[in-house]
Amino acid sequence: MKKYISIILIILLSITSIVSIYFNVSHECKTIEDLPKQEKSEGMRGIYDIDKNINEKTIDKYLGRSDVVYRDVRMLMDTATWENKGGERELTGFVKGFEVVPYAYLTEFPEEYVQQKKDENVSGLYQGKTLFSLDENGNYVANYKESMEILEHIFPKDKYIFIMCGAGGYANFTKQMLVSLGWDKEKIYNVGGYWNYEGKNKVSTVIKDGDKVRYDFSKVSYHDIDFDKLTKVKKDNEKDKK
C-alpha cells in the first residue's frame, strides 16, 4: 500500500513540475508581443510615411518595450522663427520614454526646404555643425570620422526605432536618412507628431511663474553631440560652419 502511495505521489509531483515549467517558459517567450507590420497612413499623413497602426493615437500601447528605442527629433530650443507662423521654438513637451536628438544635428536641411520656410517668413533654421551633409547628388556624406558610430549608437540597428517630432515631418526626414545610410526600413516607424498626441504619457517642460514662462529641460533625456570633440573629415570643398 505504502509503495503505491509513493508511486502516485511521485507521478503527481512530476506532472506538477512539468506543467509549471511549461507555463514559465511560455510566459517568458510571450512577454514581448510582435509589433504590427508597418502600414502607411492614408492621405497627407501617408506622405510623411506616418504609420497607420503605431502613431500618436496608439503609441501608449507600445511604450517601454525592450526591443525598441524611442527618439524625438526636435530641438530643445529651435533656432528658427516659428512664432512667425504661429508656432513656438521651445520643446514644450514630449512623450515619456522618448529621448531627444535633434534632426538638425544629424544632417543639413535641404536647400529647397530652407527656401520654403523663408517664403513662409520663417528664417533662422539651424545651419551649424551636423554629423552628415548632403552632396550634389543628394547622398549623405559624413562630416566626422565618428559620425556613423554616433548614429549607430543613437539609432541601434538591432532594435526597432520609433521616431516622433512635432507633426511627423522631421521624423520622416530622419527615417529617410537612416534608410539611405543602410538601416532596415522595416525596423523604423514614423510614429507621427507630438502635437497630435493626447495620451497619458505627456511630459510638459513648461513652468508658469505668474506672467513668466520658463522651460525645465532637465526632464528631457537628451542626446548631446559635442562636435568640438569629433574628428573632422577633410573634404575638397570643405567650408567651416559656425
Binding site: 507662423k85 508656432g87 520654403q116 520656410k117 507633426a167
Partner: peptide, 13 residues
C-alpha cells in the same frame, strides 16, 4: 488649421 513645422511638396496654404 495647420501645423507650423511641416509642409507638403505643394504647401496647402
Amino acid at each position: 488649421t495647420y501645423n507650423f513645422f511641416c509642409n507638403m511638396p505643394v504647401p496647402a496654404k
